[in-house]
């Protein structure tokens, strides 16, 4: 992913992409990622002591591991160009955002570069997730 400003500028000059085609692509690629996730979680249920209740954590961790490999080898970015939201919305997209930022800023050193920029893109997801969850849970627990 590139910085937002660039995207805005680029979209002005880029020819309009057909919405329907993008949606179909997002649908099947996103669905496919979920099928892989389902297979991974059945794997953990079968061979390890995880129940359907508890399998979410190892599944997510494993999917992010996969996205590290794909990001590292440069596959995920190309995948993203084709799949659009199909690769951004699954948790692998979150992983990709963190990992690609970490790799990209490595030349600035591990503390200021990697540490400081890791959540540059994914930070807003965490911020709004946590804050809205706080509000929702607060309302729920009071009433």
């Amino acid at each position: 992913m590139k910085p937002e400003n660039y995207k805005k500028l680029a979209s002005k000059y880029e020819p309009k992409k057909p919405v329907l085609k993008n949606c179909i692509r997002a649908f099947w690629t996103g669905g496919l990622v979920c099928i892989i996730g389902q297979a991974v979680s059945y794997f953990f249920i079968f061979f390890f002591n995880f129940t359907e209740q508890t399998v979410g954590n190892p599944t997510v961790a494993f999917m992010i591991f996969l996205s590290m490999l794909l990001t590292g080898f440069g596959v995920y970015d190309r995948l993203g160009q084709f799949a659009g939201a199909g690769s951004a919305v699954p948790v692998t997209g979150f992983g990709n955002a963190v990992i690609s930022a970490a790799i990209e800023h490595r030349s600035e050193g591990f503390v200021l570069g990697v540490g400081g920029n890791m959540f540059k893109l994914a930070g807003s997801v965490i911020l709004f997730g946590v804050f809205s969850a706080f509000i929702v849970a607060l309302i729920k627990s009071v009433f």
């Binding site: 669905g31 659009g84 951004a88 919305v89 997801v125 709004f128």
Partner: peptide, 25 residues
């Protein structure tokens, strides 16, 4: 269901003209 959620995201980006960051948030 997974595919449909992604389509919702795609529509927000294409039709709603949101950046991926806004969409995911």
């Amino acid at each position: 269901i997974g595919g449909l959620i992604c389509v919702i995201g795609q529509l927000m980006m294409d039709v709603g003209k949101l950046t991926p960051g806004h969409t995911l948030s």
